[in-house]
Design a binder for these strands. Structure first.
Lengths: 232, 232
DNA sequence: CAGTGGTCTAGACCACAGT
DNA sequence: CTGTGGTCTAGACCACTGC
């Protein structure tokens, strides 16, 4: 049993799909037919089909059959870490400010809280080779008894900051990526004297009940960062 | 059998992980133990564990057990379509040029070809509400007998352009996202008179053998596009 | 050696599609 | 009604781990 039967089934069907012998919408051979074809039991055949379904190749309709799925042509996976990206990585982070503030209207709305609730604001500058490359602001919901340990915060990514208060797994995350021209404050922080675009990444974190627990905005020098995404 | 046994197992173990009763690295009850606990057969228990493994909650080491996985805190999924994004969508595309060119050094390198090979260049402008919002260039490997049908190209996304020549499923894709200041040409195309940043998205497509088959660069007005990514 | 997960079988009953 | 996929069982043998 060098290679399991179910993998042989997976490879064969993948090959048929990639060679357009099977096209999106087509029916795959029924499970009983595949049992005979491979001399395998139904559970083995179903294991192969389950893998194909999981990888997005097929889907099943009970009572009808397994069908070839239309691939998601627009789907990409991106690994975002404010400290590391495709062309560079932060070697030093400087804490500018840690404070407890009252949110303005927009921030209160983003965090789904009223304006009289306290919010922790953390502002940092990221450096590469001694030069500032990104300006970073985080807003966290304030919780009593949750000490803010500056040493822990200085070099932490956003999910890391929250992982002690929220379950690792409950965390849901959202990114918004756009480009902008720096304002005077940011030009000063990032030593920008001529025209330079910023890549801005907003990061929202939600707990298991879909309540926002934090908002982060990172302003990267456009000549410093490239984000990379890949299919599968 | 309102809800299958294997789903009950999945939910129970997920709850234990989310409540930190089980922490990353911990062993999950062995399969035989779970069989007794739920009065189920081993195949049923394994079906539940397979789902948890697929969703990234656990991993297994043969001969040792199933262990709680450390979640990927940096992973996001992004749906990128040059015609549609989080805040806007293209309602008109204008074909500026379709041509066969010889690549310069950089393009030849990107496409893994020599400089004497032909490349199809397609330049387009995207409009929203009558105003130009993005400038788009695609480079496709030239293939004999592959007609370039302008009507098909004008409103197609990049994967769509190639899907008639390459298997849907074989396609591998890569995105590079960065911010830049527009040059004079792009300012003219996009009616930019004052300071405005561009969000630039480069898209590379590869066939099943990992050979590049196309390169696309889209320059979006920074006030027009926001890309959105989400975890799970 | 006993315990673990990985593969596999040959049945079973169910709900559902289509005729 | 037959054929489909969805769930489930009670066994089996294997390779691997750790003692």
């Amino acid at each position: 049993m060098v290679s399991p039967v179910y993998l042989k089934i997976v490879e064969d069907i993948k090959r048929k799909i990639n060679s357009t012998e099977l096209k999106p919408g087509d029916v795959v051979s029924s499970e009983t037919a595949l049992c005979k074809e491979y001399g395998a039991s139904r559970m083995t055949v179903r294991k192969g089909l389950a893998i194909l379904a999981n990888e997005g190749y097929i889907y099943s309709i009970p009572g009808k059959g397994n069908f070839v799925q239309k691939p998601e042509l627009n789907k990409y996976t991106i690994y975002y870490d404010e400290m590391n990206n495709a062309i560079n990585s932060v070697d030093k982070a400087r804490l500018l400010e840690v404070n407890i503030i009252m949110p303005d209207e927009k921030l209160a709305g983003d965090l789904h809280i009223t304006r009289n609730k306290n919010v922790i604001m953390i502002r940092r500058l990221f450096y590469t080779d001694g030069a500032p490359v990104a300006y970073d602001i985080k807003y966290l919901l304030y919780q009593k008894g949750m000490p803010v340990v500056e040493k822990e915060i200085e070099h932490a990514t956003f999910p890391e900051m929250l992982s002690k208060r929220v379950s690792y797994f409950g965390l849901k995350k959202e990114l918004i990526i756009y480009a902008a021209i720096p304002d005077e404050d940011i030009k000063r922080y990032l030593n920008i004297y001529d025209d330079l675009a910023l890549l801005v990444v907003e990061q929202k974190l939600y707990n298991g009940e879909n309540k926002p627990v934090g908002l982060g905005i990172t302003y990267f020098r456009g000549d410093y960062i490239k984000l990379q995404g890949t299919s599968q």
